[in-house]
Every structure is written in structure tokens, then in C-alpha cells.
Simulated scan of single mutants.
Amino acid sequence: MSVESGLVVVDKAGGMTSHDVVGRVRRLAGTRKVGHAGTLDPMATGVLVVGVERATRLLGHLMLTQKRYDATVRLGQTTSTDDAEGETVARAAAGALDRLDEAAVRAVFATQVGDLLQVPSAVSAIKIDGKRAYQRVRQGETVDLAARPVTVHELVVHDVTPAADHLDVTISVRCSSGTYVRAIARDVGQALGVGGHLTALRRTAVGPYGLDVAHTLEELGEEFVVLPIAAAARAAFPAIDLDERQAGAVRVGKRLDLELSGLSALFAPDGEFLALYQPTGAAARPVAVFVG
């Protein structure tokens, strides 16, 4: 079949890698021109943005700077990966959880909001001298990653549920790209002196794309839904509608006498998505042209 260029917003199931999803979408779309933006760990579920055909070129420019998650943090146990996929390496001392009240738990989670210096998990996908950190850990190396600036715009604590040997806390997070929710779980557990890790993670939005436009792979197998490239660009960038003369210039990659506030999506009078342009002085120059 001939598939339309655009984004496929996938509601990823647990246990799959982002690469697994790309492979499945390639088969469903009948094209090799498929890529993804914003990797999700196998344990995590939720929104994974996949580009098809010409939209693969759009992925690197998408303003996916904010992400939303729902998560469950388990206090009282520390794991080797800061999430449920790792081995338990420490448990809270007897009575330590009993001494924690809900107000104290909520207060420590509140310290994780704002501009933070966060140390990523040692099993993250960050590259060290060309090799992923998690690959080095699996080979028995000790990995020390430098703290990185991240921003947690909002963190809402929903429920604090005690059990025999742990405390489960459900939260919602709105944060910048590069933020590790499992690092929040680890750091809160350390601050409370009982350890912590992530037991569930669901990404509910990446940039402007949320679960409301996402489909499971099973649903996509029944009906392959593509968000057309023009609609995807309008959702992610400031949109500029051009006249015919300007559109003609954009089709051949010319600069425009046009004032832009930042990277913007330019459209022909009939609504066709033409290009991404960015300001340069009082004019605008092409970053990527999608027609021609």
C-alpha cells in the first residue's frame, strides 16, 4: 500500500523496545522509511511518536521539549536499575517506613519540582565514549554519570498507599526532555532514608501529542491511522500561511522577507506543508524543505 507521510502516535505496550515498535510500524505501513522520537524504556507504556515517509525528516526538529508521565514509586526498596526491572539491592531498615508519615513523603516529592541537577540512572541510554551506559553496566563496568540540568514543571502526588514492607506513591509529572522519572524515585527514596524505585511508568504526552491521538499496535493493525504531516507540523510549530509568491520561493529554498518568532512551519495557500524556516535577522531562512 502507499502510506501517507505523517506521524503515527503509538500507545506502546509494556515489554517492547522503541525499536520493536518501529519494526512493527514498518510492516504495517509497508515502508522502511520509519523512525521514532523520544525513546521509551521497555517497562514503560504510553506515547511514542513515530514518523513515516517524509515525516521522518520532521522528527529531529519536533519541539518535544515537554513530556507528561503517570508513575508509581515504591518506597522501601532500592534496585540496581532504579526501576522494577532491576534486582533488589537494599531494603528499608525495620520500622523505617512506620516512621514516615504522608506529609513527610509529600514534602520530599515537592523538592523535585523546578530546575534540578539530576544524575541519570546508570542504566540509561546516555553514551559514554560511544557506548551506551546500560551496555557498560551489563558488561560489569561501574558507571558514574554527571548530573544534568532538567526541569520538572509540575509533580502531583495522588495516593500514598502503605503495605507490609513498602509504600507505593502514585504521581503525575510534567517535565523537560532528558528528565528521568526513575531518578526522581531514587532521589526521593534516598532523601527519606528508605530507598525507592519505579514500578510503573506511563507517558501520557510528548509535546503536543497525547494519548487522545494515540493508538495501540493492535488498533493500528486494524486501521493504520496517520496524523498527516501538515497537521503534525501545525500542532508542533508556530504556523505561517503564505501567499502564492512566497510559497513559490519556499519551494526552491529561498530566503523570505518574513519576521518569525522562532522555528516555524510554512504552508501554501491550499494548506500544503512546505518547510521549516527560522529567523535570521529581519528575514527567514530554510531549515528543512519538504517539497520540491
Rank of each mutant, 00 (worst) to 15 (best):
L48C: 10
L276E: 05
A84L: 12
L7S: 05
L242S: 03
F290S: 04
G292S: 13
R186E: 02
K33Y: 09
L155I: 08
L276T: 02
R251G: 09
A44P: 00
V89N: 10
T161G: 09
A29Y: 00
H197N: 04
V8M: 06
R26H: 08
V113D: 05
F109S: 01
F267P: 00
R136V: 00
D187V: 02
R138Y: 00
A231N: 10
L227V: 14
E223S: 15
V206S: 15
G262E: 07
A275D: 06
P286K: 08
F109C: 03
D257L: 14
L62Q: 05
D212K: 13
S177V: 10
L28K: 07
V157D: 02
A122I: 00
S5F: 05
E219K: 10
D20C: 07
P149E: 07
L217F: 07
F224Y: 06
T88H: 09
A107P: 07
D41G: 05
E259N: 13
R32V: 09
A284K: 08
S264K: 12
A247G: 11
A92S: 13
L97F: 12
D144F: 12
Y209G: 02
R91I: 08
A268I: 04
G248H: 12
G14F: 09
R245C: 11
T151F: 08
R136H: 02
A233G: 07
V226Q: 08
V108W: 09
L100Q: 06
V137W: 00
V50R: 01
Y134I: 00
T31G: 08
T111Q: 14
L242E: 05
G178S: 06
G210N: 11
L97W: 09
C175H: 03
G114L: 05
A183I: 00
P228N: 12
P286H: 08
G35Y: 04
K33N: 11
R32K: 15
V119G: 00
F290D: 02
V226R: 04
A90N: 09
H166E: 13
L97V: 09
V137K: 00
I240N: 04
E223V: 14
V108H: 10
R91D: 09
R27E: 08
R174C: 13
D11E: 11
D270C: 10
R54V: 06
A183S: 15
H153V: 06
R57E: 11
I240Y: 10
E141G: 01
I171E: 04
A268F: 11
D159H: 15
A236D: 13
G23L: 12
D41R: 04
E154R: 15
L40I: 05
S172T: 13
A232E: 03
L75N: 04
A147L: 00
R245N: 12
K12G: 02
P120Y: 00
G6H: 05
Y277F: 12
T151G: 03
K12L: 08
G178N: 05
A13V: 11
D20L: 07
K67W: 08
Q77I: 14
L75P: 01
R203A: 05
E87G: 10
V206C: 14
D98Q: 15
T161L: 15
L75T: 01
A107K: 14
A231I: 08
Q118I: 00
L64Q: 02
G51M: 02
G196P: 03
